[in-house]
Structures are given as structure tokens and as C-alpha cells.
């Protein structure tokens, strides 16, 4: 069993950034073929199913497991600048430079304007499986993710707090 907080690990320390092209293209495809509802359904299913081992680890380990996961996650992503802070009742992930948006822009790729919303839709589905809440603010290259226990009583997600990507 891997000691990494990541459920799926590679032999390389970091992934290949060109794969962000495929994620962006997948979103464009799903939005075009299945509409926004289909895209949302895809992300929620991905969060509950593919990420089930992480969700279980979060449920068992609470916020320290959430913090450990995101530290390991961004260490394995190339090019980002991220700080993970453990606070009472919440973990804040301050993404100063989003590695995906950075690479997509460097590659002159048209980014789907909904791109940053995927972090909330996916994160919310995963957090719910772990008995947590997730909120997102910012976007378009810099944002803050918050994972919190119910005791934090976070206000509902403000959709306007998530910026669209300006390609």
C-alpha cells in the first residue's frame, strides 16, 4: 500500500502538463455534446466514483487528510504556486498560480470559460462524500478552495464568486 496521500501515483514525480490540454478539450466536448447538465453530471460522477479512495481517506482522516492530499497533489502538478493552510474547522488552498490555466495559456489554447467551475462542482461532490463542505472563490488563474467541517457553517457557495476564464 502506498504511503502517499494520493490514491493513484506514478513513477515520475510530476505529471506532463500537456495533459491539461486534454482536460480542457474534454470539457469543451462534454459541453458541446451533452450540455452544461451533462458536464456537471460527469464531474459529480467523477468526484464520487474515480475519487472514491480519496473521499474515504478524507472521511476517515478529516481535515489533516484533506491538507495532506492537496499538498501532495500540487507537488505532483507542474508549474503551480500553491499554499495549503490548516485552520480550525477548515483547510484553505490558496492557488496563487493555477498550473492548468498557466499551461493552457502558454500553449495558446482556447480555455472553456466554465473551466474554473469544475473545481467547485468536483470538489463539492468529493467533499459531500467525506462529510465536508467545499467552497471556491476566484478563478481565471488564481483562487481559494476551502474544505470545511459542517461546524464551520460556511455560507452557501456564491456562483458569482467563481470567475469565468477570460481566454
Amino acid at each position: 500500500m502506498s504511503a502517499s496521500p494520493l490514491p493513484y501515483t506514478d513513477t515520475k514525480p510530476q505529471g506532463s502538463a500537456d495533459f491539461y490540454y486534454a482536460t480542457n478539450a474534454t470539457f469543451r466536448f462534454l459541453l458541446a455534446r451533452l450540455g452544461e447538465d451533462g458536464w456537471r453530471r460527469y464531474l459529480r460522477d467523477l468526484g464520487r466514483d474515480y475519487f472514491a479512495p480519496v473521499n474515504r481517506a478524507w472521511r476517515a482522516g478529516g481535515l489533516p487528510a484533506v491538507a495532506a492530499y492537496w499538498r501532495a497533489f500540487f507537488a505532483a502538478e507542474p508549474g503551480g504556486e500553491v499554499e495549503v493552510r490548516e485552520l480550525p474547522e477548515r483547510v484553505e488552498i490558496k492557488v496563487r498560480v493555477c498550473p492548468a490555466i498557466l499551461h493552457l495559456r502558454a500553449g495558446n489554447r482556447g480555455i472553456v470559460r466554465e473551466y474554473c467551475r469544475h473545481c467547485h462542482i468536483l470538489g463539492e461532490a468529493r467533499a459531500a462524500e467525506a462529510g465536508l463542505q467545499m467552497r471556491l472563490s476566484g478563478g481565471d488563474g488564481a483562487c481559494v478552495h476551502t474544505y470545511a467541517t459542517p461546524a464551520a457553517a460556511l455560507p452557501p457557495q456564491d456562483p458569482a464568486a467563481i470567475r469565468e476564464v477570460a481566454s
Partner: peptide, 26 residues
Amino acid sequence: MIGCHDFCGHYEWTFAWLERAGGHPL
């Protein structure tokens, strides 16, 4: 966030999801 370090994992998962959603043509 969907990462690139485990891309092949969610990419492969996506094929199965698409097949359930729209069959092999999708």
C-alpha cells in the same frame, strides 16, 4: 481540480462514463 499527474486514470474512467452516457459512438 483535475490533475495531470494521474491523467491516465481519469482519462480511462472517462471512456467508460461516455460509453454509458452515449454508447460506443460517443
